[in-house]
Amino acid sequence: MALEPTSRGRFNLEKATILMLDGNGMGMDILVQIVTGLGAKSLHRCLTVEEAKDVVKRNTIDLIIADALSPAGEGYEFVSWLRTDGGEPNAFVPVVVTAAHTPVSMVQKARDCGAHYIVKKPLTPVVMLERILWIARESRPFIECDAYVGPDRRHKNEGPPNGVPRRRDDLPPEVGDAQEPNLSQDQVDGLFSTRKVSL
């Protein structure tokens, strides 16, 4: 569900240490203005992958926001390095990759680099915050194998892709009429209230 920009819900980014990687000065400025607006205070600004690696080696990071960088996708390679050689605990840190445009040749690299999310530019505060909150809330399983290290990529259940028929044992997409009356509010409340049971 999309984050409501007028929400009164509270969150606290003040203690988080955030590494930001963007080789474009204006891109970095935009990112800094967004994350400081969201309340972050401890920022590492890196213009190159080498700087970012150095920061990762010397500090414990709570969140990484890395641009894909050049069309060659150096930013994706940085995330791959982080997952395999970043050392604990940074190897597992939440990563949001930002990309102005993903060339067709880079799609697989983007998908397999090990980022939690790839956010398409232009960046907006509400989308960045939404992704950060999602990552923290969903606690996706982490997969480590020869071919991939990173959060489980199968985190959305969107049904079969277009053109792929449903499985024989899938329920039909149409929902029929209700066969029983709705639960009363008391019955609904009863499902949530704590009960003492004797074992």
């Binding site: 007028t6 009164r8 606290n12 003040e14 969140l63 605990p89 939440p94 990552i135």
Partner: peptide, 22 residues
């Protein structure tokens, strides 16, 4: 994720305030 714990710490800001400030 340490981030998840930090986000829930007391204080901070509301979504509306943060988005407007950003």
């Amino acid at each position: 994720y340490a981030l998840a714990t930090m986000l829930r710490k007391p204080g901070g800001t509301t979504v509306a305030e943060a988005v407007e400030r950003a």
